[in-house]
Each structure stands twice: as structure tokens, then as C-alpha cells.
Computed example of a mutant assay.
Amino acid sequence: MSWFKRSDKGILTPTESKREVPDGLWFKSPAGKIVHTRELKNNAYVVPDEDFHVRIGSEEYFEVLFDEGKYTELDPNMESADPLKFKDTKPYPKRIKESQEKSQLKDAVRTAYGKMNGIDITIACMDFSFIGGSMGSVVGEKIARAMDHSLQTKKPILMISRSGGARMMEAGLSLMQMAKTSAKIALLDAAKIPYISLLTDPTTGGVTASYAMLGDFNIAEPGALIGFAGPRVIRETIGKDLPKGFQSAEFVLEHGFLDFIVDRRNMKNRLSTLLRMLQN
């Protein structure tokens, strides 16, 4: 019976002494590779050997791109109201509040300025964790103000997009942000201030149809999904199977809608080299 029962009770670990592995200590890639989060962070949140780019938020991008992770945030307390009194299964203000508590963000974009390899730059970065990175009035206003900051200071601006598209709870007001941000980009162009657009996984809907595709340079991370409507919607609309890799960054690059694809580990150096070339 000793085969099935421990006779020495002294080697048993009391239940109250057992500890669970902390959440987020390890990351498992889609291919099954297990990576310690410290190693992942040190590798710009790209899985070693696989080159899989993990989805990250504004805090991580600011950490990767700004020198020593130091920056000054613009409009940090701006948050959405409920101008349309949107009727849904859940009141819009309640959904905003829940998203804020869950994500620890005020809305789906953060904007900041600082230095990147010694170059002054403004960065606007979307957060998919806040209602799918949807573009509402706050997103459009914060991006427009970040562009105003670049116009005033003559600093280049980097827009990092990750979004499911326009926020339906703000309807027409959400769609108006496409025109507003596009008009600001025209002002940047007239002032000859570089505007670089970085598309990450996924970038879709009204964001793709506006500021995400209007950069002086449109670049993307490897494997990012980029498009207007989703593949399923397009397939059902045209009644045909889509090409392999349709809407991947590589497919979009091949068809002329991107200038180049950049590995996140090289992003900071590539961007600063590009900006120095433009300055010279």
C-alpha cells in the first residue's frame, strides 16, 4: 500500500504553505514557446527565436521608444462624456467607467513627448485594451492636440495605431474624428513637420481610413493585421475566398500601401535614423 500512500507525513507541504505562480510571470507564444516575462521585456516584447510580436500598450511602447523611458504626458485626464445618450444593454458612461477600472487608462489613446535617441519627438499611442482601441471623440481630440503640440514645437510626431475602428457608441461624433485628424495632418505637411504612422496588430476600420494611412511614411510591425473591414465581412460580401495572408502587413506592403516593415527590436534606431535623414 505504500506505493499508493505516503507513509512519511513530514514531507507533505501544508495547503496553507503552497504558493501559486504569479500571474504574468511566464508568456506562452502561439507556437507554444514559454518565455519569462523579464526576457520578453528585455527583447522589446518580441518572442526570441520566433520573432512573434506580442501585443503591447502605450506604456510599453513609451518604454521601448523614449530614452530611458522618460516622457511628459499630454492631456492625461481627458475622458469621454455621453453626448448622444447611447441606448444599449449597458449605459455608455458605465462601460467607460468599467473600462477605465479594468485597463487603468482614461481612454484608448495616450500622447506624450520626450526624446528618442536624442531627437525631440511627440508620440501618440493607442491602447487596444480600452474598448478595442476604438476611436471616439477623446481619441480624436487627444491626437489632434498632440499634432498641435508638434506644430507649436516643430517636433516630428509618431502615431502608433491599434484599433478596431470607430466607436459605435459615439456614432457620427466618432466618424468626425477622421476628418479632424486628417485636417491636422495637412497642417503638419504644410509646415514640413514629419508625421510617421506605425500600424500594429490590428489596425482596422475608420482608423485605417484616416490618420493611420496618411503618414509621410507608413510603416508596420511584422504580421500585423491591417485593413478596413474584417476578412470575414469581405469574404461574405464578394463571395470569394481571399488570398493567403490577406490583410497581413506583408501583403499590404507587397501591394504598395506601406513603405516598410520594421521589427520592434529595431524600431527606435530605424525611426531615429529616418528622422535624422529628414532633418538633414
Score class of each variant (00 low, 15 high):
D82W: 07
S174D: 10
S150Y: 05
V21Y: 07
N269G: 08
R19L: 14
K70R: 13
E170L: 09
G132M: 06
R235I: 09
E254K: 15
V262Y: 03
A144M: 07
L25G: 04
E79M: 12
Y45K: 00
F128C: 06
I121C: 00
H53I: 01
D263A: 09
N77V: 02
A81F: 14
N218Q: 12
F4P: 01
K94H: 10
P14S: 11
H53A: 14
I121N: 00
A124I: 04
S2F: 14
R270E: 11
N42D: 15
M78E: 08
S272K: 00
V21T: 12
S272P: 04
S17P: 00
L105M: 15
I131V: 14
R162W: 02
T72P: 00
V138R: 02
T111F: 08
G133T: 01
N218W: 10
D49H: 11
R235E: 15
L199M: 09
R264A: 09
P30S: 08
I11N: 14
I196H: 05
K9N: 15
E170F: 10
P194R: 03
W26Y: 11
K5L: 13
E254V: 01
Q279M: 12
L151W: 01
V262E: 11
E250S: 05
V64G: 08
K18N: 08
F128H: 05
M78N: 08
I121Q: 05
A179T: 15
T273G: 05
